[in-house]
Amino acid sequence: MNYIPFIGLFILVILIFSGLVTVAQGNVAVVTLFGSYRRILRPGLNFKIPILEQIYRKISIQNRSVELEFQAVTVDQANVYFKAMLLYAVQNADEETIKKVAFKFISERDFMQALVRTIEGTIRGFVATKKQAEILGLRREIVEYVKAQLDHALEEWGYHLMDLQINDITFDKAIIDSMSRVVASNNLKAAAENEGQALLITKTKAAEAEGNAIKISAAAEREAAMLRGQGVALFREEVAKGLSHAAEEMKQANLDTNVILFSMWTEALKNFAEVGKGNVIFLDGSSEGMQKTMGQIMAFLQMNLTTKADSKGSNTN
């Protein structure tokens, strides 16, 4: 029995199956022929020439990330420790881009080493021009600086830097302690200034309130004094009018006006006794004392009448 046809068929089947290549979604396969670039295979089932064509490399076009930890030194010789996350990907699935990715570096490991070292060196160069007190506020500036420096280089390699996130920036313990003390002292200073401003405002408002109260009290006292003066003046005016009227009537009746003085004297004694509240008041009860006291009262009343007459005359003028 001749097995040669079966053997030949079997070998042919093996060759056909060996030429079938499956490329996963999100990947591209690079095919070489005798070591030279031949073509690329897209996701799905593909066929290559058995034995002659070889799969040189399968390249993922999906997003990839890597974590970085490194140290930098500021211009004032402070150690800064960075923790960052790098997100990158192949620019696109075009043939020229895939050729760059496949042949620029010997392996994926070599590319990663170059990428990480380039980013670390770029950040170290930026940090070396800054002081440690500035670094914490420069996260965005650091990321923008790295992207600006790497965009062209990554484009030549066929990659694109999608994002660089600086997750943590720390310093040596001694620097952290000193920064904490500075922050604490600044907070205490700000608190003291705020308390001083609050106390000043409180004192100022209290002084303004006290001043306003004094002004109001003075105005009220002035008004009360004026009203009291007006009341006393009116009282004296009415008393003078009553005495003058009584004196005129007694003259017309041919009576002695000293009776008025005697009546006022007795009324005064009566009022002293009623409102004295137990106080001792010494009065000269003799006729000379009465005449002297009443004369003083009449002179005082006459002076008020004269003053009033003069003021009326000046107002008329």
Results as ranks from 00 to 15, higher is better:
A190F: 02
S185A: 14
S217Y: 15
Q230A: 08
G231Y: 10
E221G: 07
G211D: 09
K215N: 15
Q230E: 10
L199T: 00
A207P: 00
K215H: 12
K203M: 05
L188P: 00
I201A: 15
E223D: 13
M226L: 10
V232L: 10
A220R: 15
A209R: 03
S217D: 14
I201E: 10
N194K: 14
E223G: 09
T204Q: 06
V232P: 00
G229V: 09
V232K: 04
R222D: 09
R236N: 05
A206S: 00
S217N: 15
E193N: 07
A191K: 02
E221Y: 09
V232I: 08
G196S: 13
E208F: 01
V232G: 01
T202N: 11
T204D: 04
A225L: 12
T202W: 05
K205D: 06
I201M: 10
K189F: 08
G196E: 08
L200P: 04
T202I: 06
G196C: 03
K205C: 03
A213K: 13
L188E: 07
S217F: 13
N212Y: 12
E237Y: 06
A220Y: 13
L188T: 06
E210L: 06
A225W: 13
G231C: 07
E195S: 04
A219G: 10
A218V: 14
A224N: 11
A206L: 03
A191D: 04
L227P: 05
Q197F: 06
R228C: 02
Q230K: 08
G229D: 14
L227K: 13
L227Q: 15
A225D: 11
I216S: 15
A224P: 05
K203I: 05
L200G: 06
K215F: 14
A218C: 10
G211N: 13
A190H: 07
R236S: 03
A190Y: 07
E221N: 12
E223V: 10
A192M: 03
A184T: 01
R236K: 09
E208D: 07
L234H: 10
M226G: 08
L199A: 05
M226T: 11
S185V: 09
Q230N: 10
E221P: 04
A190R: 07
K215G: 11
A224E: 15
R228W: 09
R222H: 09
F235C: 02
K189V: 04
A198K: 02
E237V: 01
F235W: 05
G196M: 09
Q197S: 13
